[in-house]
């Protein structure tokens, strides 16, 4: 059954579960993530969207250091943190063991245990990229979720290959000669799509139903699935903690962060803004982009807009070319 068919059923996000059943949530309160951090929002939405027993393999990063702190843990689901670069490889081992135990009759064959690997953009785009690519190619049935906060935030805000052009980080500071990061952001979803795995999606916690639907499709993909999710980092983006989702949504409305999926080779944009806002709406209100709005850096904003437009058109073309423009 195609992934699309599974998820076309009208599925509401279980808001009741999020609002009233905190004591049953996968992540207990009391973790040490920063106020306004996007990661917790993403994780709560994810676990609210599905009901499977899930085993989590978590790469080193903000979520990991803030949720499991010996002798305490925030996790109410089985959880393992191995190292920074190997969440996908660890999850491969978990998935393989589940298969082996089922085959040998040590685990009921129909028990729907799912495997979830989680990493930040550092653990996904950069140091964990090889392990991720390997796990996807081998076809392990797992969902790999990247919470993409566009930098190494756990070590204090250094650049990653997901950090956007022009952004100021602690390793691409705005100096008198170099005005921030001078390289474009890598497009991880395109690279994952090139693995021709069943399901790849990009999403944002500011569009809950879209995210929940994609998470459900990912878990029902019968193979490897990759979900990339924009995750606001108030600490290193320099944003107001209470405005995280509004700012995140600006990335969507400007088409800087398009919401789309690649469902067994069919590219589909799942949200098209009625009016594509100028990229300055996304760049505003973030201290890491503040210098871009100075007159002498106008060329940088123009370059960002041009690159954004090019990528958006490319996505539209891919959607048309693969027949994704119809109903999902």
């Amino acid at each position: 059954m195609a992934v699309a068919e599974v998820a076309t059923k009208k599925q509401e996000l279980n808001l009741r579960k999020i609002a009233y059943e905190q004591d049953k949530e996968a992540i207990a309160p009391g973790h040490k993530l920063c106020p306004g951090c996007g990661i917790t929002v993403i994780m709560r939405q994810l676990f609210a969207a599905v009901d499977y027993p899930i085993i989590v393999a978590n790469a080193t990063g903000c979520l990991e250091v803030c949720s499991g702190n010996l002798p305490y843990t925030s996790w109410r689901v089985p959880w393992i943190h191995n190292a920074f670069e190997n969440a996908a490889a660890t999850a491969s081992g978990i998935e393989a063991m589940i298969k082996a135990l089922k085959r040998k009759g040590k685990l009921p064959a129909d028990k729907p245990i799912k495997v979830l690997a989680i990493g930040g953009d550092g653990g996904t785009y950069d140091i964990g990229f090889q392990a991720l690519s390997g796990a996807m190619e081998r076809g392990h049935e797992m969902v790999y979720l990247c919470f993409d906060n566009q930098g190494y935030m756990n070590t204090g805000g250094q650049r990653s290959s997901s950090t956007p052009f022009g952004a100021s980080t602690h390793t691409t500071p705005v100096g008198s000669v170099i005005p921030g990061k001078m390289q474009e952001r890598k497009d991880i979803c395109f690279i994952l799509a090139a693995h021709h795995i069943p399901y790849v999606a990009q999403c944002s916690p500011s569009r809950w139903p879209d995210f929940a639907r994609k998470i459900r499709k990912a878990f029902e993909a019968n193979g490897p699935a990759f979900v990339n999710c924009l995750s606001v980092c108030p600490t290193d983006w320099g944003t107001e903690p209470q405005k995280g989702l509004v700012i995140t949504q600006m990335a969507v409305e400007t088409c800087y962060w398009p919401l789309y999926e690649v469902d067994r080779g069919v590219w589909r944009i799942t949200y098209k803004p009625k009016q594509k806002l100028p990229v300055t709406e996304w760049l505003a209100n973030q201290k890491r982009f503040r210098h871009l709005l100075r007159p002498e850096n106008k060329w940088m904003v123009e370059r960002i807009q041009a690159e954004l437009d090019r990528r958006w058109e490319q996505l539209l073309a891919l959607e048309r070319a693969t027949g994704g423009t119809g109903e999902a």
Partner: peptide, 28 residues
């Protein structure tokens, strides 16, 4: 044998997968 064999993409991932598999509960 009815072992689940993972032909990983590096030794780093070999040992990483071993850790994941062993923690899941079995001989690795």
């Amino acid at each position: 044998v009815d072992t689940e064999m993972i032909c990983v993409e590096s030794e780093h991932s070999a040992m990483s997968a071993c850790v994941g598999a062993a923690a899941t509960g079995g001989r690795v």
